[in-house]
Simulated scan of single mutants.
Amino acid sequence: MTLTQEQKKHLETLLIAGEELEAVRYLQDTLGLSAEEALQLTEKLDKTVEQSPAATMFKTMKHGSKHMMKDSKVGKWVGGIFMFFGLVMLGVCTYIFYTNYTFAQNAVIVKGEVTGFDTHYSSDDDGGSTLMYSSIFKYEYQGQEYEHTSDVSSSSPDYDEGDEVEILIDPNKPSKALVNEFWDRWFVIVILGFMGTMFTGLGYMAFRLF
């Protein structure tokens, strides 16, 4: 009732993989043992195999693979979240672009004059604050004066008081205006487009890698 080297290796492989039942059947078929005899021999061999370097390595790899699977799921979740927020930003960016474009197509151009600045403080990451300026424009349409405050703020005034700029207005609602300058028209779109592209790209890379 001896096993050849090949038979022993096959049994070790089954036992390392946790296939005790298959090992018992293999011993029954190979050596013609009864179920009880095959089970007893399998238990003896199992104790020996548990101490072998191959079994230790297999357990380590199995444990590591579980961690990798867990990390993989976390990576996919993080990637999915980044992609979601990125796509939301790109969607908002597209909506603002379309809205501004449609508004400009139907707008009337008038001359506006800088009359002052709206100021507020913006907090930074270091706990400090910066004084921000938003230009205030005065313009006239069909004999009536209107005032518009820029949606764009900066740490220093973009214009001097008295400067003249082109302003786009809705002829049906003259109080609705948009300064016809690059940053007033496209600043939010550029920022959202950049952030949305970055978040979507990073999320996609994380999703694919994991």
Rank of each mutant, 00 (worst) to 15 (best):
E22S: 12
E22W: 05
V24P: 00
R25V: 02
R25L: 08
R25D: 01
Y26V: 03
Y26Q: 07
Y26D: 05
L27K: 03
L27G: 01
D29Y: 04
L31V: 05
L33R: 02
S34R: 06
A35M: 07
E36M: 08
E36V: 10
L39K: 14
Q40E: 13
L41R: 11
K44E: 15
L45D: 00
K47A: 15
K47F: 09
K47H: 08
K47N: 09
K47S: 09
K47T: 12
T48C: 02
V49I: 13
E50L: 04
Q51F: 10
S52A: 12
A54I: 09
A54W: 07
A54V: 12
A55S: 08
A55L: 02
T56W: 00
M57W: 05
M57Q: 07
K59H: 07
M61E: 13
M61F: 12
K62M: 10
H63V: 07
H63S: 09
H63A: 13
G64H: 08
H67S: 06
H67P: 00
M68G: 07
M69R: 06
M69Y: 01
M69W: 10
M69G: 15
M69T: 11
M69D: 03
D71Q: 14
S72H: 04
S72V: 01
S72F: 03
S72C: 03
K73Q: 11
V74G: 00
V74L: 09
G75D: 08
K76T: 08
W77V: 12
V78S: 08
G79L: 12
G80W: 05
I81P: 05
I81T: 14
F82D: 04
F82H: 05
F84W: 03
F85Y: 13
F85D: 05
G86R: 07
G86A: 10
V88E: 09
M89A: 13
M89G: 05
L90S: 11
L90V: 11
G91T: 08
V92N: 07
C93Q: 14
C93S: 15
T94D: 06
Y95Q: 10
Y95I: 14
Y95L: 12
I96H: 12
Y98R: 15
Y98V: 15
T99L: 08
T99N: 11
N100L: 00
N100P: 03
Y101K: 12
Y101G: 02
T102G: 09
F103A: 02
F103K: 08
A104C: 03
A104N: 13
A104E: 09
Q105I: 01
A107L: 06
A107W: 07
